[in-house]
Amino acid sequence: MPTVVRAGLRRARIELRQQIMTPMALFVLLGPAVMLAVLYWLRDSPLMESALSVGQFLVPAYLAFGIISGGVLGVSGEITTERDDGTLLRAKTVPHAMTGHLFAKFFVSIVTTLLPMTVIIVGASFLVDGVTPTTTWGWIRLLLLSVLTIAAMLPLGAVLGSIFKGPIALLWTTMVIYGLCAVSGLFYPITALPVWLQWIAQVFPVYWLGLGFRSVILPAEAVVLEIGESWRTWETFGMLGLWVVIGLVLAPIALRRMSRRQSGSALASARERVLTRGY
């Protein structure tokens, strides 16, 4: 195994241990716990005139949201922090360490994104009816979809994290993402929104992420709530694939640009900012 891969794995193992072996790890489970409580609460409320319950509709929404927040917000937040505290500059001073670092980050992000998702899907399968794939093929599709969407989200997180500076920027990123979630029909049927908003939503990956999870998880009759009353499977894979490509093209450019600007004095001014302004 090449040194970079071995070092990256070692780093991933140490970081995962640090994240899991702390009291903070419980907070990671707090989110899924609250979500499960909401699902249970709404398991019998009918969703508009459909045969679905609100609880049922929310399961794929939560899965999609978990990937978006874990992938985009998690990665962009970490990159912002690591830029300011010198982690990235440290990696630059050691041969090949930047590659090993990104490898580890990718690996850790996949694990930390999938973990709460697993909690939700397992928990939901006990609490709400009709929210798990019914066939082996269904489970395989769920897994493939998860991998594809994580692959689409992580590079975008890296791009956003390296473009914006400072935690205030992270707040903006968060608001943009939440805004997209709101117009993308993640938490209620998109067909309830004005048509022009539906068109905007279909440009961004969030809508396709939600559609993908609904198509895999919800019973077939739920399709009546979708645009054109179709799951549009091929379009979903096409659009998500396109966003993977966009992310993979943009991420190295953004990361390289950011890492070029990294230096001791940039670090010192970030430290100065934290000391004087407190963030």
Partner: peptide, 28 residues
């Protein structure tokens, strides 16, 4: 070798594991 004045990275890491990890990159 580079030693900067503003490093406060890897706060959660332990001295030994930190040096072990970074050392791996020099083995080649």
């Amino acid at each position: 070798g580079v030693v900067l004045q503003s490093w406060r990275d890897h706060g959660k890491w332990r001295v030994g594991e930190f040096l072990d990890y970074l050392g791996m990159y020099y083995a080649d």
